[in-house]
Write a protein that binds this DNA or RNA. Structure first.
Lengths: 299, 299
DNA sequence: TTGTATGCGTTATCAT
DNA sequence: ATGATAACGCATACAA
């Protein structure tokens, strides 16, 4: 019977199925930027495991505009998606309770919501930073500057802030707050613009929130007549494929991008199968890869 | 009435609409690699104009596997998408006649089909190459090597082959075929592996099919003790945002990626509105941007 | 103009 | 087991 159907090239109409079954067999992935290869790899990982379960991935990019994110969520709910994978803007993103309210399986990426418990997948936040700081400290660096993204609303920034301060205190007795630079945007130009502020604290090494930002910083340093790693060491957290490129070669903590997608999809499917199961958190490692941008401090 | 509906938060069920109207208000975009920012930007451009028309973009990445492309097309046809935007594998891709047969509005990217006329959007192929060759020739280069992707089935490779030969003949009297290197894959490693073959023809400048390939070539040259642009000039066609990155800085012909998506979506909508209109071709310019990887040949 | 019945292609239910 | 039937939520054609 099934093969007879396949012989004849017949296949059920998804629209009729969705109407009748009140679900679409689609899972939505809502991301800030579809041109960012990081999210592309997450999408690939998620699509892989969803296909196996007979579902499809629906990707929506909102280009960092909250009102677009809200619109895309509305749209997905209308489509009766089986689940939503979302990287929220902040830990107080109002769309998160809305989604939970709507009763749709939800997986948060990167951050968790402050009040609303959900399934979510993150990468280790403390370990890679500690590993990076230890790497620099072992190379002789003491004045290590760090960039932190977003305001105080960002849990990840706060966690990094605390981790940084604790490490510096434990290793060197004190943490000089002037070495901490808070940035709004995580782009190349943002890195370039941050250079004067960074240099004001006269660091010998800089930890950047991600590799694109690090590239901008390196470019700004070059304009200031400073070369990496000769004059300053540079380390990037949360890297993309860029860090490994010849000509870039940044020491960085590398995210398991595909795996993030895989785990997120897995959590969605698990909740579809068991709506009342307790929320689960998956924490993925982000090991440090030493490349050419960090060097021992000359004595 | 409409606003009354919106006040109450009501909105039509897409499934019921699709079932009744025999169309989904979705447009499919089928691409080789969702982690490639080039396709991300195309997707963004397409999504923008589709949203305005009340449609949504459905992105599917097949990771360069023909059988996956075929499956995704089947899936999209079942979903009754309003149209399909596709970058076919070759000018004889068998999925193309199938799609036309199915009667779904279809826009081809990059290449056109050899026998089946369709709407399509390409970038200029001859002009950027000629511009690049002229740029190198003006810098004093005579032995200009070039990489060509794919076998003889690739129309674009053939067009570039002819363009290259004609330019070299007209400018220097003859085209040395040993300067032409045919490659199968367009990846970083592929560029690195091509270096020995390229060097065998002792060129002073190299034209690479795209910037990732160029990066690989530069890396391979460095391993061979040759520096760009000091020892060799390097020029990339069909660039992505990579070329402009500090630390990369390749002279390259820059694709209007977003615009490709915009035009493709426009063509889909036009055909939805007028199914019998004649096929249209949009050719977008790809101007040369001179950066640090090309230099005058020392006398 | 406003209202009402029918069908789109499934699945689920109920009767056989 | 197998088969007929209703309902999912909309658009449309036709009646009032």
């Amino acid at each position: 019977m099934r093969d007879a159907a396949e012989r004849l090239g017949y296949s059920a109409s998804p629209a009729a199925r969705a109407l009748r079954m009140r679900r679409s067999w689609w899972v939505g992935l809502i991301i800030p930027d579809i041109a960012n290869p990081m999210f592309g790899e997450i999408a690939r990982g998620a699509a892989e495991v969803l296909e196996e379960a007979g579902c499809h991935l629906l990707v929506s990019s909102h280009d960092a505009r909250p009102e677009r994110q809200a619109g895309q969520i509305r749209n997905m709910l209308r489509q009766r998606v089986d689940g939503v994978i979302l990287q929220p803007f902040s830990s107080t993103d109002e769309d998160v309770p809305r989604l939970v309210q709507a009763g749709v399986p939800l997986v948060l990426l990167a951050r968790r919501h402050r009040t609303q418990p959900t399934d979510h997948v993150t990468m280790e936040l403390r370990a890679p930073l500690l590993e990076g700081l230890a790497h620099l400290a072992d190379l002789g660096h003491r004045r290590i500057a760090i960039t932190l993204m977003g305001g105080r609303t960002s849990t990840s920034a706060e966690e990094r802030f605390e981790t940084y301060c604790r490490f510096m205190r434990e290793r060197f007795g004190a943490a000089d707050k002037s070495l901490i630079v808070r940035l709004e945007r995580t782009e190349l130009v943002s890195g370039r613009e941050a250079v004067p502020v960074l240099l004001a604290a006269s660091p010998t090494a800089i930890v950047a929130s991600n590799d694109l930002l690090a590239l901008g910083i390196r470019d700004g340093l070059r304009d200031a007549g400073l070369l990496v790693p000769r004059d300053l060491s540079l380390l990037a957290l949360d890297d993309t494929f860029l860090s490994a490129l010849p000509g870039i070669e940044l020491t960085s903590s590398t995210l398991p991008k595909r795996q993030i997608g895989v785990e997120a999809a897995r959590l969605i499917l698990a909740r579809v199968a068991a709506p009342r199961r307790p929320c689960e958190t998956v924490v993925l490692p982000a090991p440090l890869v030493v490349r050419g941008s960090t060097e021992a401090l000359p004595a």
